[in-house]
């Protein structure tokens, strides 16, 4: 079985009086794509931000690559950060920099790469996310929504991370673009054997990408496991989420994909995780 990359242990979060997470335990294994789903306000994005170390949980801890995010010293934390990449929902490209400089920035920050090498690497990254080199000198404001996502993905991958976080990767894209973006993510995942944690609302994205789903509802993780198993859970939220027409189609698609193209990056995942 694969080794754990992220371990969330006994995590509690509260905003003022309102409890958002109540004793959450979750493990993400190397090479898998884990989708976090849940109703709006269920704390998916907060949990993602806690895994990134942007927010601190009230109680409990988050370990990434076996190191606690809250007990590590700044140097160690920096090393951890360089091993993970994030695709923010709106892209979060630096609006004052060109596409090229946006992707080159993290590489230049390493201070060991030569400019010549960086130039080739940026072009390679752009190519691998399907952006032509002629767009490299554009400013983010001149790009369409789909291109912003692709460039943001290229930046997230700039330092060759092993761990990739995606916040609503297909939100705001039309079905066609969303489909091709999902294909791109699948391709890159296979090529680079990334571990991916994504937050998503979109059933099609979920079906096309996720190896496992974690469902957040009523402050708890109510189910964790492969799509086909989670979909059979009798919980009200899961029923509403998966039992509609679109939900059923998505589950079928996920099961079919699982059989036809199993995730080659994972040695074996636990079938069901105690919640």
């Amino acid at each position: 079985m694969s080794e754990p990359v992220i371990e969330v242990r006994n995590l509690w979060t509260r905003f003022g009086r309102q409890i958002v997470h109540r004793d959450i335990n979750l493990t993400v294994y190397r090479g898998e794509i884990l989708a976090l789903v849940g109703g709006s306000g269920s704390g998916k994005t907060t949990l993602l931000r806690q895994m990134l170390g942007l927010e601190r949980p009230g109680r409990g801890e988050v370990c990434v690559f076996g190191k606690s995010l809250h007990k590590s010293d700044p140097d160690e934390l920096l090393k951890l950060r360089r091993r993970s990449g994030v695709l923010f929902q709106e892209g979060a490209l630096f609006s004052a920099l060109t596409v090229f400089d946006n992707i080159a920035l993290p590489m230049r920050e390493l201070r060991t790469l030569e400019e010549d090498f960086i130039r080739d690497l940026v072009l390679f990254k752009l190519q691998s996310v399907g952006i032509e080199a002629k767009h490299a000198s554009k400013m983010p404001a001149e790009l369409s929504g789909g291109m912003v996502k692709r460039v943001a993905l290229a930046r997230a991958l700039a330092l060759e991370p092993e761990l990739l976080f995606l916040d609503e990767p297909t939100a705001g894209l039309d079905p066609d673009r969303s489909e091709s973006f999902v294909q791109l993510l699948r391709g890159l995942h296979r090529e680079l054997c990334l571990t991916v944690v994504m937050v998503t609302h979109d059933l099609d994205t979920l079906a096309a990408l996720a190896d496992r789903v974690a469902v957040l509802c009523e402050q708890k993780l109510i189910a964790v496991g492969p799509v086909r198993e989670v979909a059979q859970n009798a919980h009200q939220f899961i029923c509403n989420f998966f039992q509609g027409e679109r939900g059923r189609r998505a589950v079928e698609a996920a099961v079919k994909r699982e059989q036809e193209q199993p995730n080659a990056c994972v040695a074996g995942l636990p079938e069901k995780q105690g919640v």
Binding site: F100, D116, R119, D120, L123, F124, Q127, A133, A136, S137
Partner: peptide
């Protein structure tokens, strides 16, 4: 890997 000539940039 079929990169365009970087001098164009």
């Amino acid at each position: 890997l079929e990169l365009p000539d970087p001098t164009s940039l």
